[in-house]
């Protein structure tokens, strides 16, 4: 058996060496330096880029709100809306900053694969809702600021929107924008979590058989217990009915 194993090993090593030689390619220093200049193209690289752009966008929107607040400070609607969105913007910026730091920490590739997967899963799961919400707030901010600026430019003033219907309609439209934006961002995040969960399953491949065996045994025990309970309940009900009839 050992001889057969050694023979298999030698065959595999030999074939691997041959195939590797056939597929081999070499890059020179210049080519590698060129590749090194490119940014990371992986998932976390894309998220970081999106977050940084969003943070710049939010800062621009907050500057816009400050400007319109300065111009129409006596308008209660402008005062309330601008203050609300500036504060919301600050909270979102803090959350995005924390998120960027978090990505940097979990992505230390020098650790063992199991630790890496667990930490990344924990991080992305805990931010599954937070990340899309924080990004989506920009839509609401843009809509609110855009409406106020349009009104100010077209009519020379910003409508105070004292009517309850106006407030309900405007708020509903903003919420709808947030929900649609969240729905667009959520699958992107979810796909990363699915990928990590699938990788964890690959890693636990060796334990799968034992886990499945335990699950099957437990399922059988639960089924048996339920069967006994239902049987006992049925028997008691039958005895009660018979006694009642007698």
């Amino acid at each position: 058996m050992n001889e057969e194993n050694n023979h298999i090993d030698e065959n595999l090593f030999h074939q691997w060496q041959q195939e590797s030689e056939n597929n081999s390619q070499q890059l020179n220093l210049t080519e590698m330096e060129k590749l090194l200049k490119k940014a990371s193209s992986d998932f976390s690289g894309s998220i970081k880029k999106t977050l940084k752009l969003d943070m710049i966008f939010k800062l621009c929107l907050m500057a816009g709100f400050l400007f319109i607040l300065f111009l129409y400070m006596d308008n209660s609607f402008v005062l309330f809306t601008s203050t609300l969105f500036i504060l919301t913007g600050l909270i979102c910026l803090a959350a995005e900053n924390l998120f960027l730091k978090g990505i940097g920490q979990v992505q230390s590739m020098e650790r063992g694969i199991e630790d890496l997967i667990r930490d990344e899963l924990k991080f992305y799961r805990s931010n599954l809702i937070r990340y899309p919400v924080v990004l989506s707030v920009s839509i609401a901010m843009f809509y609110a600021l855009g409406s106020m600026i349009y009104h100010a430019v077209k009519y020379g003033y910003v409508n105070p929107f004292r009517d309850v219907t106006d407030v309900i309609v405007l708020t509903s439209l903003m919420l709808l924008g947030i929900i649609i934006s969240m729905a667009a961002n959520f699958p992107f995040f979810r796909s990363k979590i699915n990928n990590l969960e699938s990788l964890l399953k690959d890693l636990r491949n060796e334990d799968d058989f034992r886990i499945r065996e335990r699950e099957i045994k437990l399922k059988k025990q639960i089924t048996l217990a339920l069967f006994i309970l239902i049987g006992a309940a049925g028997l008691i009900a039958l005895i009660y009915i018979i006694l009642q009839l007698l």
Partner: peptide, 12 residues
């Protein structure tokens, strides 16, 4: 280690 971790964590 780093190369394999990068390849493994890459989005499928």
């Amino acid at each position: 280690r780093i190369a394999l971790n990068t390849a493994l964590l890459r989005q499928r």
